[in-house]
Structures are given as structure tokens and as C-alpha cells.
Simulated assay, not measured.
Amino acid sequence: MVGTSAKVCWSSNREQPVETVHRLWPTELLPGELAQVLPTPAHFEQASGLVTREMVADAVTCGDEVEEHVEAVRAYVRAGFDEVHVGQIGPDQEVFFEAYRELVLPVLGR
């Protein structure tokens, strides 16, 4: 089995989750090998300034559009992964789990 993980931010407001990801997890979008070579947290903080909200909006599935979340998981499946672990960035964990249980997973199961 080959697994991977995907990070998302489920919310009914598109702008709020982009802001949440940009604030809490900008290092996910550091270019090149920066995330592997930076020696200290201070360096990560400095490099995170390279990540824009637009980059987050383009790269991370944010919001409550079910089909976007479904497609994000399906892209990993098409790439050959057997397991995809989806993690919510930020708060609202219960809302995320409920939405995936009731809305996203049933579509993926078809």
C-alpha cells in the first residue's frame, strides 16, 4: 500500500480558510527545497514571507465546495496512491469531520 496526506481547510467561507492556512501553515508552500534545508524556526518564519494568500488559494483546497474536496482526493488516487489521509488545517475539526463523513466520503465511495 502506498499512502500520502492532503491538507485542506473546510469552511463555509472561502476567504477565511485561505487566511487560516496562510497564517498557520505557509511552510507547506515553500518553494524548492527550502522546507528541507532551513536550520531554525526563525528561518522558516522568514521564508514564509515568500508565500502569498494567492499561492494558498491556488494550492490548498479551501472552502466547502464538495466537488473540490472530492477532486483533491481523486487526484492522489489517479497518481497511484492507495490511501489518502486528509487533514484539516486550523480549527473547526468537528465541522471538517462531519462534512467529510456526510458529504465528501459518500461521493468518493461511488
Rank of each mutant, 00 (worst) to 15 (best):
D64K: 08
G49F: 02
T40H: 13
F81M: 12
A47V: 02
A99P: 02
G90N: 05
Q46H: 12
R101T: 11
E71G: 02
S48V: 01
Q93P: 03
E65H: 07
V60G: 00
V95G: 13
Q88E: 11
Q46K: 06
V84A: 09
V60P: 02
Y100L: 10
H85F: 14
E98M: 08
S48C: 14
V84Y: 02
E68K: 10
G80H: 07
V95Q: 14
A57L: 01
E98Y: 10
L50M: 14
E102A: 11
G80Y: 04
Q46V: 09
L105V: 15
Q93M: 11
P41Y: 01
R74M: 06
Y100G: 12
P41W: 03
A99C: 06
V70G: 01
V70N: 02
L103M: 11
R101G: 04
R101S: 06
M55F: 01
D92I: 04
V77W: 09
Y100R: 07
E65G: 08
V66R: 12
A42M: 10
T40L: 09
A72F: 02
A79F: 01
D92Y: 11
Q88V: 12
T61L: 06
E98W: 09
V70F: 07
E45P: 00
E45H: 02
V84Q: 03
I89M: 13
A99R: 09
R78S: 14
D82L: 01
G63Q: 03
P41A: 01
A42H: 12
F81G: 05
F96D: 03
A99M: 09
E94P: 00
V60R: 01
R101K: 10
A47T: 08
E45K: 09
D64L: 05
E71S: 11
L105A: 15
V73Q: 00
E94G: 13
V66H: 04
D82Q: 02
I89Q: 14
V66L: 10
E102S: 11
T61K: 09
E94S: 14
T61I: 12
V56M: 00
L50S: 02
F81D: 06
V95Y: 12
V60C: 04
A42G: 12
G63E: 00
A75R: 14
F96H: 04
R74D: 02
G63V: 03
D82P: 04
A72W: 00
E71P: 03
R74T: 06
L105I: 15
F97K: 11
G49L: 09
G87C: 13
T52A: 12
A59S: 15
